[in-house]
Design a protein around this nucleic acid. Structure first.
Lengths: 142, 142
DNA sequence: GTGGCTGCAAACATTTTGCATAACT
DNA sequence: AGTTATGCAAAATGTTTGCAGCCAC
């Protein structure tokens, strides 16, 4: 049991300030069901009635990443970075090239892979980024 | 047995012209031991005595990708795209965060993963991008 | 009160695009 | 000769940074 991350506590604990923009960005990121870009986050935050500059969104996300609370990845698209809350459990992404849907998939493969590399090759793994592109069940059969 | 790709033949076959810039970019990409950025490719090409504009490098690479001859990926760095010849066999990347070395690793994991997703989830896989970050054996023990 | 944080605007880096010219077929 | 691809320069995009003022502590 660990429940949702207490942003305020984590920030203070590490000597950072708890500000309105940071809370707003975190809220928007935490409740997003897809993987928002900075632009999307800025829009969501604005919709919440908090006016935050994109630069501050970048800075907030950079801090969250540094604190281990968020993750970026460049999914297929190639253009903008997409953000998500950093889940402790290893997972990877399935990106549908037809409908654009991105879903999480939790499996043992990442763990297996890590073990294989550490034991067999002396490679000390610190992060795994796995993106699978293809067509989701709905689009493949449609 | 299939040997090196015959760029000229592939281009003509698909109705594209065989030009000096395209050949130069392909040569530079094919002989690169790491995963060059557009900037690095442009420099290599220039060093070969062929003066190619970066825009043309982008266009050439875009075409190669479209023809299935090349692949881009945004490895850890986050900034510029890195290119490589598209190998038919599935492999993935090990990126050392200390020395920056990028090595290929061929394994059955990608195939296993594909099979698992196709059979268990109806997800039609068309591409897998797996990037593992960490410390290579040399840097981990150093 | 003070130092970190924000907003704004400008700088930066990467990639794309429009157009006249050059070059492949 | 006909058209496609190139070079050049400008624009578009995504992200970072400098700085004056503001706000959490």
């Amino acid at each position: 049991m660990d429940g949702p991350v207490d942003l305020a506590a984590t920030l203070r604990q590490r000597g950072h300030r708890v500000t309105r923009p940071r809370r707003a960005v975190w809220d928007a990121l935490a409740r997003a069901d897809h993987h928002p870009t900075v632009e999307e986050l800025a829009a969501a935050v604005t919709a919440d009635g908090v006016d935050v500059d994109p630069a501050s969104v970048y800075r907030a996300l950079g801090l969250f990443e540094e604190l281990g609370l968020a993750r970026v990845s460049r999914l297929g698209d190639g253009d903008a970075g997409r953000w998500e809350v950093a889940h402790p459990d290893e997972h990877f992404h399935l990106v549908c090239q037809d409908c654009g849907e991105v879903e999480h998939h939790v499996g043992s493969l990442v763990a297996q892979l890590t073990e294989h590399l550490e034991e067999g090759h002396g490679f000390r793994v610190t992060g795994v980024e796995l993106v699978v592109t293809g067509r989701c069940a709905r689009c493949a059969t449609g």
